[in-house]
Design a protein around this nucleic acid. Sequence first.
DNA 1: ATAGGGTTAG
Length: 478
Amino acid sequence: MLRWKATLSSSSICRLKRGSKTLTTSAPDAASIASVILKSDSEAQIQTLAPWTPDLVNQVVKRLWNHGPKALHFFKTLDRHPAYAHTASSYDHIIDISARMRDYKTVWALVAKMRALRLGPSQKTLAIVAERYVAAGKPDRAVRVFMNMHEHGVPQDLNSFNTILDILCKSKRVEMAYELFKMLRGRFRADAVTYNIVVNGFCLIKRTPKALELLKEMVGRRLEPTLTTYNSMLKGFFRAGQVEEAWGFFLQMKKRKCEIDVVTYTTLVHGFGVVGEIKRAKKVFYEMVGAGVLPSVVTYNAYIQVLCKKDSVEHAMVVFEEMVRKGYVPNSTTYNVIIRGFCHAGEMERGVEFMERMKSDECEANVQTYNVVIRYFCDAGEIERGLDVFRKMSEGKCLPNLDTYNVLISAMFVRKKPEDLLVAGKLLVEMVDRGFLPRKFTFNRVLDGLLLTGNQGFAKEIMRLQSSCGRLPRHFRM
DNA sequence: ATAGGGTTAG
């Protein structure tokens, strides 16, 4: 018990200095605990590391999100704890992680165990599994999970129907969602939410005419379209490049006395901005207040982002300062958008500076922050600086994700240095170790590089690694 | 975890 106090106190004090929001994370700091777990395999040490509570366990699991095998090891270790018992939500998290690693044997073993313990599975649990199947390119298996829900003791109803449709739509499997929708809308009594999900799906794949058709069908079935329906359509027009249609649709919304909200305005600001219509974006941004709708942090983020992309980061900074002056609290997206703006303008130093400013604020640099800076350093040919930031990441208790590894591995090919290929190989080993599945392309590129630079031995090792990736599961069994 | 707005990258 003394152990966690000794290891954790210094970092806790650091976080207290600015005194405000981080305080919600109480004494046993999940970040510090996670970093101890990353270094330790000792069952006894993990079990006695903290006074475990469901909330703390979930926080630690989240910190280990990008190191699946460690997360599983942690879960399994606590499962053997004499006094602690996992909750349904930690099962959901660990099932999510296992499914992301495509370790379906473990996934279903955990689902079975959950059921044996009468902790679930819930509709949410199965939604997680279905979503991961779709993400892994297996939408048919996702649909099967939905169709067989009752076999897991989970009721199949309108909620779960809407959820599976949404999962399919969000992954752009809109056609499949639509087939399922047509087949089962009668049985489940499709409601306005069901229609909104499918309308939004067709908007996501830029099929606005089909989305409009469904909107009309909705009215025909006496289901009143909601503001959500209209906002989805509006976004869809922008996405499809139909800027004037979007504006016309907005005018119709106003004319029909629709209660236009902050989401509507944010969609307009962002939509005009991304096509370079900064004047119109600005006009909307400053007119919304007159219309009685206050911008949110998200609205500011959208506006700042489009200024960075289509105007200048200097103007974006003016808006950022205005936002702070008005009492808005920038979040990590705000910072990331600004940092990207500086990097994109070639002002890497100011980007890095802003990263520090973010840390001293209530925001911590997250994996996206690091990815942006690493990417731009590498793009600028400053490979060493990119690697430096990567190293800093591990000190900063932020685990790299798939993007981080992909960006860095690609960067290892630009200087044509044999040493870089060794680094690429090491990164590849590390990413597999952490539960990420590299693309075939990545394996081949690294293999070619190693063979060309005379590293036959290492190349062989990588080949063995690649074949072991095909034989999942490899990390864990209950 | 039943629906809509803001983060990579051309």
